[in-house]
Amino acid sequence: MDNVKAIVLRAAGINCDMETEHALQLAGSQVERVHINRVIENPSMLEGCQILVFPGGFSYGDDVAAGKVLANQVVHHLSDILHKFVEDGKLVLGICNGFQVMIKTGIVPGLNGYGKLSLTDQRVTLTDNDCGKFEDRWVYLKPGTDRCVFINPDQQIYLPIAHGEGKIVCDTDQTLETIKKDGYVAFRYVDADGNEGGFPINPNGSQDSIAALTDSTGRAMGLMPHPERFVRWTQHPHWTRLKERQGFADGMTIFTNAVDYVKRNF
C-alpha cells in the first residue's frame, strides 16, 4: 500500500511527539499525533493506521517509575485493541519513555506471547542508570538480531540517548539467556569499532549492553536511543568535521524501514 498511516501517541508529559511525527513524515508516512484520552474514548481509531509509536518524554512525570503510570493506563484500557494490532501484523515502536512503557506492559520482549499485555508477569525491566543520573550522550549501536523489521542487521548506527532509567535488567539469568539466544536483542551499545564495553560505551549499565528489544515477531521494538533526533546531518555531533556532509542520518533507517515494511506488506 502507498498510504502508510502512523499514530504517535501523546499523554501527559510526553514531549518527543513532534519530532517523531516529523521523522515519520520524512520517511513517507502520514502521521497523526493523538492524545491517549482520544484512543481510550475510541479504540477503533487504531484500525486505520499501521504504525503505532510510543514517543519519548516523561509520561506522568515518570512518577513511581519511568513509564509505569502510562503502562498501567494502557493495560487497563487498551489491552485488547493493542493485542489485535500486533496480531494483524502491524508495527509498534517505542522510543525512550515509549520503550519503558512497552517493557512495563510486556509488549516487548513479549516472552509470554507477542502482543499480550500484562502488569503481573514482567520479567525484564528498565531501571535507574548505574551512574545514578540522567545522561544525554551519543552512543554506537550494533544490531543484535536479523528478525526485527525496523533495523538493518548489518548496519551499526550512531544515535543520542537522553534518559535516567535505561538500564535493562532481567529477573533471572535464565531470562537473560532466553532474550539473548532467541533473538530478542535488537541493538547493543558498542564503541565506534563495534566492541562492547563499560561506561560510557554502555551508558547505563544494561545487562549484556542491551539498548533495544524486539518481540518474537520482530514487528514491535523498543529502544532507549532517540532515532528521531538524528534525521538530518546537522544533528550529528561531528557534523562540522565531516567531509561527506549531506544526505545521511542514521535515525532515519528505523523510520524508513518501518514505512517500507508497511508499503510491502499491506
Binding site: 514531549n15 519530532e19 540522567f134 544525554d136 528521531e228
Partner: peptide, 11 residues
Amino acid sequence: RQYDHEVQGGS
C-alpha cells in the same frame, strides 16, 4: 550531560 539538550530535534 544531565540536561537534555537535544529534545525537540532542533540541535
